[in-house]
Simulated assay, not measured.
Amino acid sequence: MSKLQLSVAVGNYDRIRPMVDGEVQIEGVDPVFMLQDPEEIFFRAFRHADYDICELSLSSYSVKTAAGTSPYIAIPVFPSRAFRHTSIYVRTDRGIERPEDLKGKHIGVPEYQLTANVWVRLFLEGDYGVKPSDVTWVRGGYEDATRVEKISLHLPDDVKLETAPEGRTISELLADGEIDAVIGPRAPSCFDRRHPHVKYLFENPHKTAADWYARTNLFPIMHTLGIRKTIAERHPWLPGALLKAFENSKALALTRLSDTSATKVTLPFVEDQLGAARKLMGTDFWPYGFAKNEHVVNRFLERHHAEGLSSRRLEARDLFHPATLESFAI
C-alpha cells in the first residue's frame, strides 16, 4: 500500500524538526511540510481550509467547533505554548503601574479573539479584577493596517471594541500615545525599538508567570494540531499515527536540548533555563496527550465561553478526535 501524501503546515519549531528532517516518520504518511508563520497558517486554514494537517489557533478552532463549522478535528498535540505575562505593553506616561490601572484605558489588540489575549484576560480578571468591559479595545494590525479579524465575533453588549483609524497600526498608535497599552502574542515594533515611553506592564513578567503557574498548574496552550475531517474519516488510523510521531519528534528534540556538551541552540546558559523549567514544572514540562492537558483546555474553554467567543460551552474532549483521548501503555 502506498503512503498518503499529505500537506502539513506548522511553524519551524525544534520539536518538529526531527519529522521535517526525516528522522522521525509518520506511519503511513509521506508528508509535504510547509514551515510557515502562524498568522499565514491560521488565515489560510480558517478562510480556505488549505491544508490536510496544520497547526491551529486554539481560540479560532474553539469558535469554529462550537459553531459546528470547523473543517478540522484536532489531536492533543500542542506545537505552541507560552506564558503570557510578557504580552502586555503599556505607556509609561499614563500612570499604569499595576494591572488594576488598566481600567478605563484604551488597549490595542491585533485580534480580540486571539488565544494569547484570552489567556491574558483570564488572569487579568481572575487575579486583578480587570474585566473585559472595564477597558476599550482597539483592534487593528500590529504592523499592517489591512489585517482583519479572521473569525466573526458576537461579543457581550458591555464589551467595547473599536477599529483602529484607517491606515494606522497598533504599534504606531502606542508609540504616538493614542492608545494606552497593547496586548498580543508578539511585541509591537515600537517596544522592540526601545521606545522611551513603552514598557512591559509587569516589572518581572517571567517571575510573575512562574508564580502564577505554581498557583494554578496552567501552562497556557496557544496552538493545537488539526486534521481535515474528511481525511480523518477515511483513514481512522491517522490521528493516532500523528500523535505518536509528534510525541517522538518532541522527545528527540528535548534529548538534544539536554545535551550541553555542545549546545544545540544559539543561547548561553540554556542548561540553566532547562533546569529551572524542570524544577518548576517537572520533567515532562511540555506535555502532549489528552489526560495531561484536559484541565488546561477546560479552563481555557470555560473562559472562552464566558467571554462570548464560543457559542456553547465546550468540554475538552469535544475538541479532539475520539481515537486520541486515550493511549496505549506497555
Rank of each mutant, 00 (worst) to 15 (best):
Q5A: 13
V8E: 02
G11C: 11
I16G: 01
R17V: 05
M19K: 00
V20D: 04
E23S: 05
E23Q: 09
I41C: 06
F43G: 05
R44L: 14
A45C: 08
F46R: 11
I53A: 06
Y61T: 00
K64E: 14
A66D: 02
G68I: 02
T69E: 01
Y72T: 11
I73M: 03
I75N: 04
P76W: 13
S80A: 05
R81L: 10
F83N: 08
S87Q: 04
S87A: 15
I88N: 10
G95E: 07
I96T: 05
E100D: 09
H106N: 14
I107L: 12
I107Q: 06
V109F: 12
V109N: 04
E111F: 01
Y112S: 03
R121M: 15
L122F: 11
F123P: 12
L124P: 15
E125T: 11
G126I: 05
G126F: 05
D127F: 11
Y128V: 10
V130A: 02
S133L: 04
S133T: 07
S133V: 03
D134S: 05
D134R: 02
W137L: 13
W137C: 13
W137T: 10
E143P: 07
D144T: 06
T146K: 15
S152R: 15
P156S: 04
D157C: 03
D158E: 10
A164H: 12
E166T: 13
E166V: 13
G167R: 15
T169K: 11
S171G: 09
D176K: 15
D176W: 12
I183F: 07
I183L: 10
P185Q: 04
A187I: 09
A187K: 13
F191W: 09
F191C: 06
H197Y: 08
K199F: 03
T208V: 09
Y213C: 04
R215I: 00
R215H: 06
T216H: 14
N217T: 03
P220H: 13
M222P: 00
M222I: 01
T224W: 11
T224Y: 07
L225A: 06
I227L: 15
K229D: 00
K229W: 04
A232E: 04
H235R: 07
P236T: 05
W237P: 03
L238Y: 13
F246H: 12
A251D: 12
L252M: 15
L254I: 13
T255Y: 07
T255L: 14
L257N: 10
S258V: 00
T260F: 10
A262C: 11
K264T: 13
L267G: 10
F269E: 14
F269R: 11
Q273W: 08
L274P: 08
G275I: 05
A276D: 12
A277Q: 15
K279L: 12
F285W: 15
F285H: 09
P287Q: 02
V296L: 03
V296M: 05
R299P: 00
H304I: 00
H305C: 00
E307K: 01
G308K: 03
L309Y: 01
S310Q: 07
R312N: 02
R313Y: 01
L319Y: 00
L325C: 04
S327A: 11
F328A: 13
A329L: 13
